[in-house]
């Protein structure tokens, strides 16, 4: 520890007399590396500061007669008011954040400053600045949303979620990151998207039609092709399965009808289904599944259905 660090540590130690000294010391040292990797752009910052200094002209020293002083003060105050107003406006524009959230029964369409558009699913929240920075377009998502991003090669569009970052230049895609469901999912309609998970170093590239699904409880990520439209079902109101497994169909029903489909069956359930699901027609969907798999049983509970039995051997 340098002398300065040692002083800081002494201060911290005194502030937390109830904590164990060895725990405090270990956390003190470990957290010292937090954000050490961040280096601001010094040249850009200095240029910005200098331009502000130049705009702010030094006051000339002028001797005033008492009668002129009152006038000067009034003029000065007016200038100060204008300056404050201008200043606040500037700050407000560069750093004011907007938070849009949706209740449990509503979705919302948003138009962003850069021309991109967002459809926010139920019980979701999106945070973004009033104006994006020159270097990047950064947003924070909790829940699920579909993005249509205007292309800007010089300003990547970056969405931060609980489990990872989704970075694009311009494309349309869907991000799902609800705190209470065990899945983080990104699905790409058009273009290319890269996803950086917070829990490891890997960046995963996704192309059109591809999805990435992270199981948050096991931390296993899976990449695949979503041909049925499950990821977009909340917007389109329909899913059409072509030769898909029972678990895939049940996941689609969960997304479309907002219920829990709890598959209790341990045995392989791999025979393939071809069927279409439509919004608001859950009973019909279950009937259709029962017709093609007579041995599958659906028992209703308060969050959805418990599914038992096998579809085929």
């Amino acid at each position: 520890m340098t002398h300065k660090e040692n002083k800081d540590w002494q201060h911290w130690h005194e502030q937390h007399p109830h904590e164990s000294a060895s725990l405090l010391k270990r956390l003190w040292e470990a957290t010292g590396s937090y954000r050490k990797d961040y280096h601001p752009n010094e040249a850009a910052g200095l240029a910005a500061l200098k331009s502000r200094m130049n705009q702010h002209q030094p006051a000339k020293v002028v001797r005033l007669s008492p009668s002129k002083i009152a006038l000067r003060i009034a003029a000065g105050l007016a200038l100060l008011l204008i300056a404050t107003f201008f200043f606040k406006n500037q700050i407000g524009e560069s750093s004011s954040a907007t938070a849009v959230s949706t209740p449990a029964n509503e979705t919302k369409e948003l138009a962003l400053e850069d021309g991109s558009s967002v459809t926010l699913n139920q019980s979701s929240q999106l945070d973004y600045p009033g104006a994006f920075s020159k270097k990047e377009r950064k947003l924070k998502l909790q829940g699920e949303a579909h993005f249509k991003v205007n292309r800007d090669e010089n300003r990547p569009f970056i969405i931060e979620t609980e489990a990872g970052f989704v970075k694009v230049l311009g494309t349309s895609f869907n991000v799902r990151s609800y705190p209470n469901d065990g899945v983080f999912e990104v699905f790409v309609e058009t273009g290319k998207v890269s996803v950086a998970l917070k829990t490891n170093d890997k960046t995963i590239e996704l192309g059109a039609g591809e999805f990435l699904r992270l199981d948050k409880s096991t931390n296993k990520a899976q990449k695949g092709l979503d041909k049925s439209g499950t990821s977009n079902a909340w917007r389109t109101g329909a899913i059409s399965f072509r030769e898909q497994t029972i678990p895939a169909v049940l996941t689609g029903m969960e997304r479309l009808y907002g219920v829990k489909m709890d598959l209790k069956n341990e045995q392989p359930n791999n025979c393939l289904q071809t069927l279409s699901l439509e919004k608001g027609k859950m009973e019909e969907a279950i009937e259709a599944l029962k017709t093609s798999c007579p041995k599958l049983k659906f028992a209703k509970n308060d969050v959805g259905y418990v599914v038992t039995g096998v579809c085929c051997q």
């Binding site: 961040y38 601001p40 010094e42 910052g45 200095l46 600045p129």
Partner: peptide, 27 residues
């Protein structure tokens, strides 16, 4: 500025977790 800008940005970013705002405030 050259001596302390990075230090100030880092101090602020550690609290706010927002690099853009940290640079604005340090300036």
């Amino acid at each position: 500025f050259r001596k302390y800008y990075a230090y100030l940005c880092q101090t602020i970013v550690r609290v706010l977790n927002d690099e853009h705002t940290a640079e604005d405030l340090a300036q």
